[in-house]
Design a protein around this nucleic acid. Sequence first.
DNA 1: AGCATATTCAAGCACTTAATTGAATAATTG
DNA 2: CAATTATTCAATTAAGTGCTTGAATATGCT
Lengths: 240, 240
Amino acid sequence: MPDNTYQANQKRDFKDASYGQLARIGKALSSPKRLELLDLLCQSDRTVEALASETRMSVANTSQHLQALQTARLVETTKNGRYVVYRLADALVSDFFRRFRLLAENRLAEIEQIRRRFFSEDEEVSPVDRRTLLERVQQKRAIVIDVRPQNEYRTAHIAGALPIPLEQLKQRLSELPRTKEVVAYCRGPFCVLAKEAVEVLRSHGFRASRLEDSVHDWRARGLPVAVGEPPVHRRLTRAH
Amino acid sequence: MPDNTYQANQKRDFKDASYGQLARIGKALSSPKRLELLDLLCQSDRTVEALASETRMSVANTSQHLQALQTARLVETTKNGRYVVYRLADALVSDFFRRFRLLAENRLAEIEQIRRRFFSEDEEVSPVDRRTLLERVQQKRAIVIDVRPQNEYRTAHIAGALPIPLEQLKQRLSELPRTKEVVAYCRGPFCVLAKEAVEVLRSHGFRASRLEDSVHDWRARGLPVAVGEPPVHRRLTRAH
DNA sequence: AGCATATTCAAGCACTTAATTGAATAATTG
DNA sequence: CAATTATTCAATTAAGTGCTTGAATATGCT
């Protein structure tokens, strides 16, 4: 009997320890701010300062949240001079984050409501158009632009997309064709860059719409993803 | 300028609201006990009482945790007489839970340490043997037994596995072949049923080992999964 | 109807967490 | 070497969480 209890306790301890470890990951994912940081880190490495200003948090608070993510081993750091660069600890994390988001979108109808309240329906690329997008690009009837900051583009982008950071968009409108459909994408469904880009483009008479996919969604669909600078001939032919 | 601020605030509100929703899921996953409940619910529907006794929690506490899972819409309930039956809200949840666990196993070396401390190496089916298991079963050199409670077996089980709940194992040893390798599996890596089964079997002279896969892992590998009672002819031929 | 059982609710307690603030550390620059 | 900049640390506060306890609700049984 005491031996039975001992074994039963061992089993309980094993379970508690195991699920306790799983909960370390869960805890890391339990704060909106940490999730926002993680989503940004899925796009590219970043310094604490850059993450703080992007998320509108104080540097100290950002640092604390990043340490929480590091404790869960979802991110890691390297020191570069005065800067500490945070990055995902493994590509698996960005893959997981995507599934986490998809689960939330599937289970929580509120997310779709929030989205509908913020985005107007006519600026989105419809699911139908999304499937034929690659085709339309190949037929030169559409062009995809990546409006994220350049280093995120370099980390990974939709193959064939033209890098035009939102900041530069107004000055570079002449590079874009008025005859084609212009599809802008950014970090994913919770990023507002592409929405702003579409507003700018439409106000200048372009036919523009927003693709809510991130480059990770694109990859997960088995569609081509590229790394680094855009091929030079592309820029020359695309520019008008 | 005031209009800019207004728009900037709208964007911030959109992000805060969106990531706030994601965090609802994260919060549900941030407690060891809730994760244990969720893992159990991946195996089959259960009443509050059943979940409480399985996890060694008070009924009230179990009920509270289940409500937290329900708030995150990961589980749902139906009332059956006096009982409230909790179940996963969608098959996507069990698929997600598996990936969550795999991420944790990948990122947190502590999990492997805890496992090694609890399981002895020689009772596990090695990764190599796992890949050829199906083959050995077909060649009638091995037999797979499912030692979970019967209703979990009925919900889903490895195709061809023989249902022998751990509770009945000692009385039903005569049904098992002494010439074949006996492979026991249960709910997955954090479940102790198969370990106990292997100990019982070995102490009675069987060649037995534990397969740490759950039926969901099996399905995710593209291997055959079945539902319901075992085919009758199987039981007759298998029984000795 | 009265009792037993399954579950939920509500209050209370110890403990944890998120965010702020100001100081400390560490690397770089003039 | 002093000043500057990026980050972390430590202390504080308010809010939130996990678990317990005892009561309340709801269903079924005799």
